[in-house]
C-alpha cells in the first residue's frame, strides 16, 4: 500500500499549500514586532489596536460596508426579479438576456473596469460611493441570478400548481409558497453580492479616486509602499468575515435542502 500513502501525502501537501498562507497571515497579525519577522518575537493585539485607532482604516471599512450593503439591496432585488422572469422565458430572448447578465463572470475584470471608468468619468461618478455601488452591482448580479435560478430549478412546480388549485391567486402563491421556498437561495445570492463588492478591487482602483477609498483600495495603496502588519490584522479580519459568510452560505444551503425536501 505504498502507492496509497504516497497519494495521501501528496494531496495533504496540496491542502497545506492551500491553507498555509492564510494561516501565516493570521498568525502574523498577532505579532508584537513592528516589522514582519519570523518567528514573531511575541504575540499581541498591537496591530488590531493600530487598525482600530486609525481614522483612515476605519473610514475605509465603513465605506466598504456601506457600499457592499447598498450593492446587496440593489443587486438582490434586481437579480431576484430577473431570475423569476428568466424562469419563464425561452429561446433567443432568454439566451441573450442570460448572456448579458452572466457575462461579467467571464469578461476580464480589467476590461469591465476601464469600460465603466471610461463612461463614469464623464458623469463625475469617479471618487463617489454611488459610482462604486453602481459598478459593483453589475459584478454582483450574476451571482444573485445564478443562486436564485438554482433555487427555482429545485422548486417542484407542482407545489405552485397545488397552491393555485387550492384557490390561491398567483400573487398569493408567490408570497406564500414560492418566496419562502427560494428564500435561502436569495440570501445566498445576497451573501455573494456582499462579498463581491466588499472584496472588489480592480474596478475600484479606477473608480475610487481619492474620494471613495474602500478597504481593499487602502490595503492596495499601503502594500505598494510598505508592508506593515496592520494589513495582516485587516486581512485576518477579512478572512474571518469570509469564514463567517461561508458558514452562513452553508447553513442556508442546508435550509434550502430541507425546505425543498421532496416529499
Amino acid at each position: 500500500m505504498i502507492g496509497r500513502s504516497v497519494f495521501a501525502v501528496y494531496w495533504l501537501m496540496a491542502l497545506v499549500f492551500l491553507a498555509f498562507p492564510i494561516v501565516i497571515v493570521a498568525a502574523l497579525s498577532f505579532s508584537s514586532a513592528s516589522y514582519l519577522t519570523f518567528p514573531p518575537p511575541a504575540f499581541g493585539v498591537r496591530w488590531y489596536r493600530a487598525f482600530l485607532g486609525s481614522r483612515e482604516w476605519l473610514d475605509s471599512t465603513w465605506l466598504s460596508i456601506a457600499v457592499a450593503g447598498s450593492v446587496v439591496v440593489v443587486a438582490t432585488s434586481l437579480g431576484t426579479l430577473a431570475a423569476l422572469g428568466l424562469r419563464h422565458l425561452t429561446g433567443a430572448v432568454r439566451a441573450a438576456i442570460g448572456a448579458l447578465i452572466l457575462s461579467p463572470l467571464i469578461v476580464p475584470g480589467i476590461v469591465v473596469a476601464i469600460g465603466i471608468y471610461y463612461v463614469f468619468a464623464a458623469y463625475r461618478l469617479v471618487g463617489t460611493a454611488l459610482g462604486l455601488v453602481l459598478a459593483h452591482t453589475c459584478l454582483a448580479v450574476p451571482f444573485v441570478v445564478t443562486s436564485v435560478s438554482v433555487s427555482l430549478a429545485g422548486l417542484d412546480r407542482r407545489l405552485e400548481q397545488a397552491a393555485l388549485s387550492l384557490g390561491a391567486t398567483p400573487s398569493a402563491t408567490f408570497r406564500q409558497i414560492t418566496l419562502p421556498l427560494i428564500l435561502p437561495g436569495i440570501l445566498v445570492g445576497a451573501l455573494f453580492a456582499f462579498v463581491t463588492s466588499f472584496d472588489e478591487l480592480i474596478v475600484t482602483l479606477f473608480l475610487s479616486g481619492s474620494g471613495a477609498v474602500t478597504l481593499p483600495r487602502r490595503m492596495w495603496d499601503d502594500l505598494r509602499f510598505a508592508i506593515d502588519p496592520t494589513i495582516a490584522a485587516v486581512s485576518t479580519l477579512m478572512i474571518v468575515l469570509s469564514a463567517v459568510l461561508l458558514l452562513g452560505a452553508h447553513v442556508l444551503r442546508q435550509r434550502q435542502a430541507t425546505a425543498q425536501h421532496k416529499v
Partner: peptide, 14 residues
C-alpha cells in the same frame, strides 16, 4: 471565499 488581495498579500509575506 477570501479576497484575492489578501491571498496575494499572504504570498508577499511568505
Amino acid at each position: 471565499w477570501t479576497s484575492v488581495l489578501v491571498r496575494s498579500y499572504a504570498w508577499m509575506v511568505l
